[in-house]
Amino acid sequence: MSGAKLLTEKWPVLGRHKQAAVWLQIWADLGRAPRTIDAYARGLTEYLQLCERDDIDPVTANRAHIAIYVRELTSRPHRRGANVVAIDSGSGLSNATIQQRLVPVRLFYDFLIEEGLRASNPVGRGRYTPGRRAGVQQRGLVPRLTKLPWIPSEQQWLRILEVARSEPVRNRVMLALAYDAALRREELCSLRTDDVDPAHRTLRIRAETTKNRLERVVPYSASTGVLLSQYLTHRAQVSRARGPLFLSESRRNHGQPLSLWTWSKVVRRIALASGVERLSTHTTRHLCLTDLARIGWEVHTIAAFAGHRHTDSTLQYIHLSGRELADKLARGMEHIHAWRIQALTSIDGTETDR
């Protein structure tokens, strides 16, 4: 059974709209990651449910109908309620989440235009011209807020480490690798035994596990290598089979690959126990890249290490580290200081001459 078929069973509204089901199947056939397909299906489902509720034909919907959907997104209470850390929209859904919800709707209308079922995209930022990559750029429906990634303070990090020390060796080495190699959650949980090269202390991050399908090789430190060696000895007691590096040790899934959700629960538990509730599976990656910027790594080197296709994503860590601003301030202050000293000494000399 195809991934798109499974999604239409999970969200029946997609099956009631032929074009939506076809659009999803095309993305699945093009080899998009299952999580991407799932996110597209979820976002389009919410929009189609609103269309059915308000008796709107999604094929002929206009900008006013999209505005109704945006209004609902900006006023919808978040399902996590009081657990939400940052509420950008003022009601519940963050600005980034709202932007994410609009992506599949915009892509769906691009598809309808390509199929000749529409002349324009009610979500698009510019006019759609077949065969052209971009049209006339206009302001987006929802202002995009660009925030720097959150990283813990030194005190918060020490509290996190204090709690992490009592974790099993598997969780400790995963936390160490997540920081040391700036790994995303899926990259970390998808590591296999043959991805590790202890002789050179490197990890191979396979293309199929990365966000942008770029394979890379990253180093890890000697201290992390010691912890990894301890874990490999422990892992042999769970399973001697080669394959996924990190295994579940629960009764129900003993010896099975550790799931993304299990790792998320581990990090969430550490966050609550340490009192640093903003800690997430991505925090260690943000912290590592910011630290690399702080110690003077060049932007292209950080981009290669992080697996960024473009340096635009990398620049936020340079900004977060404050390195360039600090350097400019230091150079500026040095010049000002030298000028003041020179001025003072010349005044002093003039007075002496008199």
Rank of each mutant, 00 (worst) to 15 (best):
Arg132Asn: 13
Ser120Gly: 10
Leu141Val: 11
Glu154Ala: 04
Asn121Ala: 12
Leu112Ala: 04
Trp150Gly: 02
Phe108Met: 01
Glu114Met: 09
Tyr128Gln: 09
Gln138Ser: 10
Leu161Asp: 12
Pro149Cys: 12
Ile160Tyr: 00
Gly116Asn: 08
Gln138Phe: 07
Asn121Leu: 11
Asp110Gln: 00
Leu112Val: 06
Ile151Pro: 00
Phe108Asn: 00
Glu114Lys: 09
Glu115Met: 14
Gln155Glu: 15
Thr146Val: 02
Ala119Gly: 15
Lys147Val: 13
Glu115Asn: 13
Gly135Glu: 10
Arg125Asp: 14
Gly116Ile: 08
Val123Asp: 02
Trp157Lys: 01
Gly124Ala: 14
Pro122His: 14
Gln137Asp: 08
Arg132Pro: 03
Arg159Pro: 06
Gln137Tyr: 06
Val136Lys: 06
Glu154Ser: 07
Val123Leu: 15
Gly135Ala: 07
Pro143Ala: 04
Arg127Val: 03
Ile160Leu: 10
Gly131Ile: 08
Arg159Glu: 14
Pro122Tyr: 13
Gly135His: 05
Gln156Ala: 05
Arg144Val: 15
Val142Trp: 01
Thr146Glu: 10
Ile160Met: 04
Ile160Ser: 01
Tyr109Ala: 06
Lys147Cys: 11
Leu148His: 02
Ile160Gly: 00
Trp150Thr: 13
Gly140Asn: 04
Val136Asn: 08
Gly131Met: 12
Ile151His: 00
Leu112Lys: 01
Pro149Phe: 08
Leu158Gln: 15
Arg159Cys: 10
Pro122Ala: 12
Arg159Asp: 11
Ser120Ala: 13
Gly135Arg: 11
Arg118Pro: 02
Ile160Val: 09
Ser153Met: 03
Arg127Cys: 08
Gln137Asn: 03
Lys147Asp: 14
Ile151Glu: 01
Ile113Pro: 02
Leu117Gly: 09
Gln137Thr: 11
Val136Pro: 10
Glu114Tyr: 12
Tyr109Glu: 03
Pro143Gln: 02
Glu114Gly: 09
Arg159Thr: 07
Trp157Asp: 03
Pro152Leu: 05
Thr146Asn: 06
Tyr128Thr: 10
Tyr109Val: 02
Val136His: 06
Leu112Met: 10
Gly135Lys: 07
Gly126Pro: 01
Gly116Pro: 04
Tyr128His: 04
Glu114Thr: 11
Val123Phe: 09
Gly135Leu: 05
Ile160Asp: 00
Ile151Phe: 00
Gln137Phe: 05
Arg132Gln: 15
Lys147His: 14
Val123Arg: 02
Thr146Arg: 06
Pro152Thr: 01
Tyr109Asn: 09
Val136Trp: 03
Lys147Arg: 14
Gly116Cys: 10
Leu148Ile: 05
Gln137Glu: 12
Leu112Asn: 05
Trp157Ile: 00
Leu161His: 08
Arg127Asp: 15
Tyr128Leu: 08
Leu145Glu: 15
Arg144Trp: 01
Arg144His: 11
Val142Glu: 00
Arg127Lys: 05
Val142Cys: 04
Gln155Tyr: 09
Gly124Asp: 08
Ile113Tyr: 05
Leu145Gln: 14
Tyr128Phe: 07
Trp157Glu: 03
Thr129Trp: 09
Ala134Arg: 13
Pro122Phe: 09
Glu114His: 13
Leu141Asp: 01
Leu141Trp: 15
Lys147Ala: 15
Arg127Met: 11
Pro130Ala: 10
Glu114Ser: 12
Gln156Trp: 01
Thr146Ile: 01
Arg159Leu: 13
Val123Lys: 00
Arg127Asn: 13
Thr129Ser: 12
Arg125Cys: 08
Trp150His: 07
Glu154Leu: 04
Arg125Ala: 07
Pro143Ile: 03
Gly135Gln: 09
Lys147Gly: 09
Leu117Ser: 13
